[in-house]
């Protein structure tokens, strides 16, 4: 069931659009913000408030890579694998993350702290290679800098 906060935030989004369903993606983002990811229950909750079927909502959820349909760690590390970062050493970044965190792309560390994902161009190409941790951008990455950045997140 949606919490009162979730419901209030979703209602505020619905208010911007002439059709309720238009706020469907925003609603999933609200659920994800509060719960970390969008579970089957989350899909059903959104479907109910939107007046849609869970299948319709899931069809939309699975289109967007930033709606997480699986649990993620406390911090989501997203390493840019697009062309400028690839030229500047994305493969080293990936190796570094793999060694440091002991997980492959798409996996979560056993302590539930980090999930590592590849991400399309972050628009920081003049400071490649780049990655985001949660909502923070980190760039001009080297092995040392990645070490130092990860230490900041506990």
């Amino acid at each position: 069931m949606l919490s009162p906060e979730e419901r209030a935030e979703i209602e505020a989004e619905i208010h911007h659009y002439p059709r309720k369903e238009a706020a469907c993606i925003e609603a999933m983002k609200v659920v994800q913000k509060h719960r970390g990811w969008v579970s089957d229950e989350g899909i059903r909750d959104v479907a109910e408030i939107m007046g849609m079927t869970p299948a319709e909502v899931d069809g939309i959820a699975t289109f967007y890579n930033l709606i997480f349909r699986k649990p993620v760690g406390k911090h989501v590390v997203m390493a840019c694998d697009s062309v400028s970062c690839w030229v500047m050493g994305y493969e080293n970044v990936r190796e570094c993350l793999r060694k440091k965190l002991g997980v492959e792309m798409g996996q979560t560390t056993p302590d539930g702290k980090f999930t590592v994902l590849p991400i399309a161009c972050l628009g920081d190409c003049d400071h490649a290679p780049a990655m985001m941790v949660g909502e923070d951008l980190h760039h001009d990455l080297t092995a040392e800098k990645i070490d130092e950045v990860l230490k900041r997140y506990s």
């Binding site: 659009y17 059709r19 369903e21 238009a22 706020a23 469907c24 993606i25 925003e26 999933m28 983002k29 069809g59 939309i60 289109f63 967007y64 890579n65 930033l66 709606i67 399309a120």
Partner: peptide, 21 residues
């Protein structure tokens, strides 16, 4: 909520309508 295709103007419009882009 992501996806390169949202930069295409009619896909963007579908995304704003809460649909698959």
């Amino acid at each position: 909520a992501g996806r390169y295709i949202c930069g295409e103007e009619t896909a963007l419009i579908n995304a704003l309508e809460g649909k698959r882009a």
